[in-house]
Write a protein that binds this DNA or RNA. Structure first.
Lengths: 232, 232
DNA sequence: ACCTGAACACCGTTCAAGT
DNA sequence: ACCTGAACACCGTTCAAGT
């Protein structure tokens, strides 16, 4: 809302010449900028999780006073939004739109998306509370083009898109929750050992799942079969 | 870990006789208990969201000192865990396991699950960070039995289960994010009006979606077709 | 067994002021 | 245009103590 730089890139970034005194600033560009704040926020989130990010800690990491941050950023929520979207940037090379092998394109796009989030587990717990940023929208756009080229009718496109999207979201969240509750100080995963209260899922070993990547891609296969019935 | 009541029900709950002085305690049972704390936490979360729950506010709501809470719960994380699981309790009547109409059983179970979460939107943003509680496991157990009765082979059961589960998780999260970012003070949903940067999804009206219930059940239909191919 | 107030070590953000 | 320190109104939790 206020008159702040926002998308406008700072013009006076210069990489060399100013040696930051050690312990004062970490490294890199000494000029405070939105980009630098976001990059530091991602580092802190990677290292300490959602609850480990504080404005004071962030200020320390970029080597400024706390309140300097507020010139570049609206508030802490804003930092979360920016960090989330920055992590979801699509870094692939191929152009979307080529018609051959739509299925490969869809699978590749969704697996990259999932891998990106798993690399930054905090992003998963942030996503449900934040709006869709530009990088997410771009990924949806690519997915949409691949499905179109697969012959999905315009009337069915949104259903197919949301269904795939939902699947990836859910799979990523589930995966991350399991990893987390195993590793960190969270409450133990209950009923990993038999208790008799959930006979069917105990028999099937649902909670002893360990091939998450395989489960993801096999489920995705079945899902795609439902969306675009194979005609052999 | 410490020697605290936990699952043990307090024996001296009595409903009548003690009129709480108005403004001192809200209403209901004046004895502090784990159940009462959780119930108040759910009310506060419903009213003020995840960030609106504080231990001091919770103590006020149950009419006790802050530190009294810590006899019954370990810490704030514990309160979150308990509130989440309490909201996901399955309150349906029918027994699982009857063989006829597995598809109806699956759909009904998943829609109830989704509706429960949407009734308490904070539960969705909590879920990715918490372990699976007993009520979630019970829902998985029911789903698992329905799929077995549908003829899903034991070897494919986990894939089918996780796929459906992921779909519901993702659909619920997506739905809640959209509702949220429309209503509250969150950043506006970007690109709801055409910008030209995402031509395909703008043409399809992906972000102008408003029939979420319909999208959910139609997508679920397609998904079930993929999991259990119809044999007419 | 259950509850308490005081105190500690933090938070995010407003404000008035500096350059 | 950009940065700052001091101050405000909060947090969750430890501790030693009460009944």
């Amino acid at each position: 809302m206020a008159a702040k730089p926002g998308g406008a890139r700072s013009k006076r970034i210069q990489k060399a010449g100013l040696q930051p005194r050690p312990g004062e600033e970490r490294r890199g560009d000494p000029t405070l900028s939105r980009e630098r704040i976001v990059a530091s926020a991602v580092e802190l989130l990677d290292a300490h999780g959602v609850n480990g990010l504080t404005m004071r800690g962030l200020a320390d990491a970029v080597g400024s006073g706390v309140m300097s941050l507020y010139w570049h950023v609206d508030n802490k929520e804003d930092v979360f939004d920016l960090a989330l979207d920055s992590v979801l940037e699509y870094r692939g090379t191929s152009e979307p739109g080529e018609a051959q092998d739509w299925r490969g394109a869809v699978v590749q796009g969704l697996e990259d998306w999932r891998a990106n989030m798993l690399r930054h587990p905090w992003s998963i717990s942030l996503l449900p509370r934040r709006a869709l940023g530009p990088n997410i929208l771009y990924r949806l756009e690519r997915l949409s083009q691949a499905l179109s080229s697969a012959g999905v009718a315009a009337a069915d496109l949104n259903i197919a898109l949301w269904t795939l999207w939902n699947y990836v979201m859910g799979a990523t969240i589930t995966r991350a929750s399991f990893v987390r509750s195993g590793g960190e100080r969270t409450a133990e995963q209950p009923a990993t050992q038999p208790t008799g209260r959930y006979p069917t899922i105990e028999r099937s070993g649902l909670l002893r799942e360990n091939d998450w990547d395989g489960t993801f891609s096999r489920g995705l296969d079945l899902l795609l079969n439902g969306l675009v019935p194979p005609r052999p």
